[in-house]
Nucleic acid binder design. Structure first.
Lengths: 220, 220
DNA sequence: TGGGTTAAACTGTGATCACAGAATCATGTA
DNA sequence: TACATGATTCTGTGATCACAGTTTAACCCA
């Protein structure tokens, strides 16, 4: 069961929720590769549960298009084309931009401190070539920001977008991204939040999401 | 099975998807009231299927917070408070505003014609005091607009928001909304689209969503 | 009659089985 | 050797059962 880190929002009331949270986190951090196939029975054995919780978790992920599920065919991780990826990063830019705007008004000193630590963690993860840890910390960074909006609906929607873009990001990130091409943005975002500059925070976060699109274009 | 209108996006490959689509549409058009309780076995009998497809549909709706599902307790339709409703309409304004902006660039003559017909349908539905039909046509109106973006992810997210706000809208709409207080907006939206005025289309659609928040404040 | 307690009915949850379609692999033929 | 065809394995899907909490209702006692 504890094969992946649990997300902060894990309610874990029942087995289905646990499996769902675990698989979703694996998607976010890139522990599942594009076009990879997922079988209910195989996963059930891995998790040590029956097929029932797994099938509900897979169906749930498929319902938010984090997985692809066709009738009588194995579930599989989506392999995004450039158009689909652009659409997702476009929505991320919209939602996270709006979230950052609100977050800039609610941010506290402890939030700044936490974000600064995450920037360091992301740096070390990169130096260790640990793509999973890198994406996990990146997710935590953004997650902390839009949790400051107090809008849980907004939060779950953005989370879903990370689950959908995670597999592709993990697949492409080690190939051609240099540490300079992105790392400069996160400290700038922290600075905008500290200064309560909502407009700048929005702009920077939107650019950070746009970076995902650019990364995709560079690959294809 | 055919107890509610099927949404345009209904794939309906399996029973779970059919039940899910049907229940979601009932939420959107207000055929399920806030705090109403839903039982797996009861619904299974109504739909003439086993409990299995129903439980998956209910879990799926609960996963997007269109229903509330606690452990070992009956599923129920959320009864939003003012803060929750405001959060949802806020997201709707963001997403639909961005969608309208893109739609204004892609709109065709046949789309305009279709939207104009829907305005008429909505008018007659109001005169007939048919709240269900009214909300259905309203949904179709907005749905058509953001389908023009070609961004299916955006589409499903907005749909989910309609499912979450539908029950409350249906409950409050017959109480205090006069036909003048909103109807003026839809023809204006059509005009903005026809003129390919993206900025105006965005502004009007955002205001249309904001109307939901105002309606809520008037109630509480 | 009122209140508390118990029993019955109802709830979602997990597990297991049967089934039909999809995919894969082996086998036999040209 | 190449290819078609067969069987076997694997896939999700639907149904049914047992179980443990939750809720509701009835009932009995004061």
């Amino acid at each position: 069961m504890d094969t992946a880190a649990q997300p902060e929002t894990a309610p874990a009331e029942n087995l289905s929720a646990k499996v769902y949270a675990d698989l979703k986190m694996k998607l976010i951090v890139g522990q599942l590769r594009p076009a990879e196939t997922l079988s209910i029975r195989t996963l059930a054995e891995e998790y040590g549960v029956s097929a029932m919780p797994v099938r509900e978790a897979l169906r749930q992920l498929a319902s938010e298009d984090a997985l692809i599920g066709a009738a009588k065919k194995a579930y599989r991780v989506p392999d995004l084309n450039s158009s689909e990826a652009a659409n997702l990063f476009f929505i991320r830019a919209i939602l996270e931009g709006a979230a950052a705007e609100i977050a800039a008004e609610n941010v506290r000193a402890k939030d700044i401190k936490f974000l600064e630590k995450l920037v360091q963690d992301m740096d070390t993860a990169w130096q260790n070539q640990d793509a999973v840890q890198f994406l996990l910390v990146n997710f935590k960074f953004h997650s902390r920001i839009y949790s400051l909006t107090g809008n849980s609906a907004l939060q779950s929607m953005i989370e879903s977008l990370y689950a959908r873009t995670g597999p592709w990001l993990a697949h492409g990130i080690t190939e051609l991204v240099t540490i300079d091409s992105w790392m400069g943005d996160h400290p700038a975002i922290i600075g905008a939040l500290r200064n309560r500059d909502a407009a700048l925070a929005r702009k920077l976060v939107e650019e950070d999401a746009r970076w995902g699109v650019d990364l995709y274009r560079a690959r294809s």
